[in-house]
Design a protein around this nucleic acid. Structure first.
Lengths: 217, 217
DNA sequence: GTTAGTTTGAAACGAATGTTTTAAACGTTC
DNA sequence: GAACGTTTAAAACATTCGTTTCAAACTAAC
């Protein structure tokens, strides 16, 4: 049986958005790949923005649910700052990995979505994300803050951006990501291993000592 | 005296590209801000791609010249791996900072340009950059490789991407970047201080020990 | 079986974009 | 100062995009 139109649009949109971004993907290519009529997008989702947000929710809703549970359980555990940081990022990326279902393109989509939470382009998506998932975001940030003491507010602000940047950018590199997964020369290297290495670097960067500000030049 | 048309287009394009990206900036807004005719872009630069590459070259040419000199001098020095890494990123970011001339928007532009060297969208710019500045890129990568021993090829590949990602993403955050520079609450924090902290995190991430690959789930 | 509501199909609309064209203005050279 | 190549000006062109329209097809309830 043929999948429902809505679902086929979402599937196609997800792939195209992940591969070429939001602005550079036209509704016509989406409906073309989905094998549905062009008008179906505006009928079912109201607008292109609506479609983008629908794609977002289909990924973020299960992600945030899983992450929230993970973080709440983590809050009860008594572990070192280091282990906590590992678990925080492990929780986030493991959830993303689970939802991506081993598909590199879906991880790229995840990275793009998080990126939109920071970027002022696609402002509607930023608003949608922050409004919809603010509690989990807050939980995530506070968990990091808690286990990154010895930083004042501003230092943490920038360190946090740096960490998110590393994560988002690494996972956005669709070319390298898909290449490494399809490569014969790296049989045992897949998405999980890449994520594993990413976590290690993230935590090391998080724990980097704060430098004394001195003149650069 | 009025600046030449070419220069005024480049100035305006630089600002707009840095603020809104390449695809989301139209030639009409550029020529509008520059106070020149629309056709002038295609006349002087051939196409929009040509303009993008011209903007790129005006930033990258002096940058790469300075960086190459810095790296060559660094190769002669006998210092620790740690200090070398600091100097490598210090050299890159200091050059970018010098060319940006204290303007946050120009740093954002720099980040976007580097991003285009990785992203397959704007493929023409990627080709242009890699063709034009390949020697300096190679010099930079090899310098990093040299001072990040204990990593095999694949590990270094991903670590390098992670580092570039952190740098690019942090400097791409134009909103935060300009806000922090204009803020009253942080009188002594400017671009140089942000870059200083970035370098510290970059080096810490570069030196993060390679993890043993184990099963994640 | 008829009817009311929902979904799909094909075409067109209006706006925005990069590019091209044509002519006028400018500047330099002989 | 006349002639010629260069630069600018204004308009139009061709294409693409998101969106809308309206009729046809389908679905489900009575």
């Amino acid at each position: 049986m043929k999948k429902a139109t809505v679902e086929r649009i979402l599937d196609a949109a997800e792939v195209e958005f992940g591969a070429h971004g939001f602005v550079e993907t036209s509704l016509r290519t989406i409906t073309g790949k989905a094998g549905v009529n062009l008008a179906a997008v505006n009928y079912h989702f109201g607008s292109k923005k609506g479609l983008i947000q629908a794609v977002t929710d289909r990924f973020f809703e299960p992600l945030t649910v899983g992450l929230q549970a993970h973080l709440q359980e983590l809050a009860k555990a008594e572990i070192s700052h280091h282990d906590a940081l590992v678990q925080i990022y492990r929780g986030l990326l493991l959830e993303a990995l689970r939802i991506a279902q081993g598909n590199p393109a879906r991880l790229v989509l995840f990275a793009r979505l998080v990126n939109s939470a920071y970027n002022q382009s696609q402002g509607h998506l930023r608003k949608h994300l922050t409004h919809q998932y603010a509690p989990v975001f807050m939980l995530f940030i506070q968990a990091m803050r808690e286990h990154m003491p010895s930083m004042d507010h501003e230092q943490f602000f920038w360190r946090f951006h740096q960490l998110m940047g590393m994560m988002v950018f690494t996972l956005s590199n669709s070319e390298a990501l898909t290449a490494i997964c399809a490569a014969e020369y790296a049989q045992q290297r897949g998405l999980p291993e890449i994520v594993q290495q990413l976590i290690a670097t993230l935590v090391a960067a998080a724990e980097a000592p704060v430098v004394a500000i001195e003149k650069l030049a």
